[in-house]
Deep mutational scan, measured.
Amino acid sequence: MATGGRRGAAAAPLLVAVAALLLGAAGHLYPGEVCPGMDIRNNLTRLHELENCSVIEGHLQILLMFKTRPEDFRDLSFPKLIMITDYLLLFRVYGLESLKDLFPNLTVIRGSRLFFNYALVIFEMVHLKELGLYNLMNITRGSVRIEKNNELCYLATIDWSRILDSVEDNYIVLNKDDNEECGDICPGTAKGKTNCPATVINGQFVERCWTHSHCQKVCPTICKSHGCTAEGLCCHSECLGNCSQPDDPTKCVACRNFYLDGRCVETCPPPYYHFQDWRCVNFSFCQDLHHKCKNSRRQGCHQYVIHNNKCIPECPSGYTMNSSNLLCTPCLGPCPKVCHLLEGEKTIDSVTSAQELRGCTVINGSLIINIRGGNNLAAELEANLGLIEEISGYLKIRRSYALVSLSFFRKLRLIRGETLEIGNYSFYALDNQNLRQLWDWSKHNLTITQGKLFFHYNPKLCLSEIHKMEEVSGTKGRQERNDIALKTNGDQASCENELLKFSYIRTSFDKI
């Protein structure tokens, strides 16, 4: 039985969820670079991206490699990797027998973001014989899940209580170790020597080791999670996991709180800001991140802002960003909400898709409305799209047979046209069989910064309504002859009103 693990408890099935942008060198404390989270699957090609990484700022997932063999891993080693800020997950990587050479110096898994409450997941690794993470000293947050690894031993010899604050939620089941077939031998045991430290858990006094050649490092209890030197002297209180010299914040392997210019500090002093819960960055760093993602459509890219001495992905609820200094300031009234469309555009074809934009005031991208039916549609669209004030790209209304009016965009005031449909149009209306009105132009103002209007096959939309939009939106004169079809717009509506004058002759039985 794995020490510190839980057996036999019912657990939810383990679901495996399925960018080499360097964020800056980590400095003297770390020998390499800070790398983003990685999802490495199918083959070993991307694994080489770990070569210079000291910190993975995010998670590391290595999974679904069915053609790899043990010899493929023999020359692979990433000794610079010290810390993973989120979680480490391995799933069905064939041929991998140990992690001792792959990650010989991995010391800390912070667990800032977890995989279903777990910071370390080893699942269905069919050839893994031992973990071998002999320098792993601290899992700051989260638990361990090690399950269905039929060859995995050296679990009962690990004292997880020396690595985690609590072992109650560890789930370590259905491994070879369960069948008591392992016969784990710690260093020196074969020669009758006791080389590794022994600890007591559940009444068992057991030597602690990761492999037959690597003991588990056990520091004096007084050192807590700070770690200790090879001689057993406690590291500085700002260290986490390990250090090369005692009581020196510049000799830590990793930091308990924050890293700044080669030393570990309790908090980031001005003019620095907390970033990702582990390091200090200056304003320029946060500003660069903001600008890199301002026009990016890459998933996970955030326009970072500053709030409460932190550089964070977005302002919290009730705050909006001051564009001059990136500071989050309290909103006066309802907060603006910028919604970034991942692929640059979004099609609204149902109430469900409209709900995804609920509360958005600025759309960074283009909207395509293609709704053919739905219950209580006008009210639903207004509830979900009615706060949109600005669209950076274009607005396209296409084959939306259920629409009679666009009044559900009740606050839309600006279409920038930074991206144009077919390279020309910022407003595009095609084949809307029941569209009769755009907006009530006596109450609604709309500016279209650039781009043209396109109207074709809107049989109940009168040309007068379209011409009014040209005047109000500032697009009059931009359109070419064929942009607004004269014969297919309003051709099934009563669009022309003329005053009919009647004269009559009164007659009676005795007068003409």
Score class of each variant (00 low, 15 high):
residue 206 V to A: 04
residue 50 L to V: 06
residue 67 K to D: 06
residue 321 M to H: 05
residue 83 M to D: 02
residue 188 G to Y: 15
residue 148 K to T: 04
residue 72 D to L: 10
residue 53 C to D: 00
residue 84 I to E: 00
residue 163 I to D: 00
residue 326 L to C: 03
residue 105 N to A: 07
residue 58 G to Q: 00
residue 153 C to Q: 07
residue 307 H to D: 15
residue 71 E to W: 02
residue 336 P to E: 10
residue 293 C to I: 13
residue 81 L to I: 02
residue 222 I to Y: 09
residue 258 F to L: 11
residue 264 C to W: 01
residue 199 T to M: 03
residue 80 K to W: 07
residue 220 P to Y: 05
residue 306 I to F: 14
residue 53 C to T: 00
residue 204 Q to M: 06
residue 187 P to D: 05
residue 199 T to S: 06
residue 246 P to G: 08
residue 169 D to R: 14
residue 119 A to S: 10
residue 288 D to V: 09
residue 185 I to P: 09
residue 171 Y to L: 04
residue 50 L to F: 06
residue 111 G to N: 00
residue 75 D to P: 04
residue 150 N to P: 12
residue 160 W to A: 01
residue 79 P to N: 04
residue 258 F to M: 07
residue 106 L to H: 01
residue 240 L to R: 05
residue 317 S to K: 13
residue 273 Y to K: 07
residue 170 N to L: 08
residue 246 P to Y: 05
residue 202 N to T: 09
residue 69 R to I: 12
residue 141 R to V: 12
residue 310 K to S: 05
residue 109 I to W: 00
residue 237 S to F: 08
residue 321 M to Q: 12
residue 123 F to G: 10
residue 168 E to Y: 15
residue 238 E to A: 10
residue 160 W to D: 01
residue 45 T to E: 01
residue 329 T to E: 14
residue 262 G to T: 06
residue 325 N to Y: 09
residue 243 C to V: 00
residue 246 P to L: 04
residue 218 V to T: 09
residue 257 N to T: 07
residue 73 F to K: 04
residue 206 V to I: 02
residue 193 K to M: 12
residue 283 F to I: 13
residue 175 N to F: 12
residue 168 E to F: 06
residue 88 L to T: 00
residue 121 V to F: 05
residue 104 P to E: 02
residue 164 L to G: 14
residue 330 P to I: 14
residue 293 C to Y: 02
residue 98 S to Q: 02
residue 68 T to P: 04
residue 115 F to Y: 04
residue 256 R to H: 05
residue 174 L to K: 06
residue 75 D to S: 08
residue 283 F to S: 07
residue 241 G to C: 04
residue 107 T to F: 03
residue 75 D to T: 07
residue 242 N to W: 14
residue 104 P to R: 02
residue 70 P to C: 12
residue 332 L to I: 11
residue 248 D to M: 07
residue 57 E to A: 07
residue 243 C to S: 00
residue 86 D to S: 06
residue 63 L to K: 12
residue 290 H to W: 14
residue 50 L to M: 13
residue 36 P to E: 04
residue 70 P to N: 02
residue 127 H to A: 11
residue 212 H to P: 13
residue 233 L to K: 13
residue 77 S to T: 15
residue 271 P to N: 04
residue 149 N to I: 00
residue 35 C to S: 00
residue 89 L to F: 10
residue 188 G to L: 15
residue 233 L to Q: 06
residue 62 I to Y: 00
residue 30 Y to V: 08
residue 275 F to G: 02
residue 100 K to I: 07
residue 45 T to L: 09
residue 331 C to K: 04
residue 53 C to Q: 00
residue 99 L to Y: 02
residue 272 Y to L: 06
residue 43 N to R: 09
residue 190 A to L: 08
residue 131 L to A: 15
residue 65 M to K: 04
residue 234 C to I: 02
residue 137 M to S: 10
residue 325 N to K: 05
residue 166 S to G: 10
residue 57 E to D: 03
residue 147 E to T: 15
residue 125 M to K: 00
residue 251 K to A: 02
residue 281 V to I: 07
residue 32 G to N: 12
residue 178 D to M: 12
residue 129 K to A: 10
residue 162 R to Y: 05
residue 314 E to R: 14
residue 223 C to P: 01
residue 173 V to G: 04
residue 97 E to R: 14
residue 84 I to G: 00
residue 153 C to W: 01
residue 80 K to P: 01
residue 250 T to K: 03
residue 306 I to M: 04
residue 94 Y to I: 14
residue 205 F to G: 07
residue 175 N to M: 05
residue 189 T to V: 10
residue 294 K to Y: 15
residue 334 P to S: 11
residue 117 N to I: 01
residue 227 G to T: 04
residue 326 L to P: 11
residue 153 C to H: 02
residue 103 F to R: 02
residue 110 R to I: 11
residue 176 K to V: 15
residue 171 Y to S: 10
residue 110 R to V: 05
residue 257 N to E: 03
residue 316 P to R: 03
residue 249 P to E: 08
residue 180 E to D: 07
residue 268 C to E: 00
residue 183 G to P: 10
residue 86 D to I: 01
residue 236 H to Y: 03
residue 143 S to H: 14
residue 90 L to Y: 02
residue 33 E to F: 01
residue 51 E to V: 12
residue 99 L to I: 07
residue 66 F to K: 05
residue 74 R to Q: 06
residue 116 F to Q: 04
residue 197 P to A: 14
residue 185 I to T: 05
residue 112 S to T: 10
residue 293 C to K: 11
residue 225 S to G: 10
residue 247 D to F: 09
residue 239 C to S: 00
residue 222 I to F: 15
residue 52 N to L: 13
residue 176 K to P: 14
residue 112 S to F: 08
residue 37 G to T: 13
residue 295 N to I: 15
residue 331 C to W: 03
residue 163 I to V: 11
residue 170 N to A: 10
residue 277 D to E: 11
residue 309 N to L: 05
residue 239 C to K: 00
residue 323 S to A: 07
residue 148 K to R: 14
residue 218 V to F: 04
residue 117 N to M: 06
residue 308 N to P: 01
residue 332 L to T: 05
residue 234 C to R: 01
residue 251 K to Y: 11
residue 296 S to A: 10
residue 248 D to I: 02
residue 245 Q to N: 13
residue 72 D to T: 04
residue 39 D to A: 11
residue 177 D to V: 06
residue 95 G to M: 08
residue 229 T to V: 07
residue 207 E to T: 10
residue 213 S to K: 06
residue 280 C to Q: 01
residue 40 I to G: 00
residue 217 K to Q: 13
residue 317 S to L: 11
residue 286 C to A: 02
residue 105 N to W: 01
residue 59 H to M: 13
residue 162 R to S: 08
residue 317 S to I: 04
residue 336 P to N: 09
residue 252 C to T: 04
residue 301 C to L: 12
residue 204 Q to A: 05
residue 247 D to A: 12
residue 287 Q to A: 12
residue 151 E to T: 02
residue 310 K to L: 12
residue 284 S to K: 11
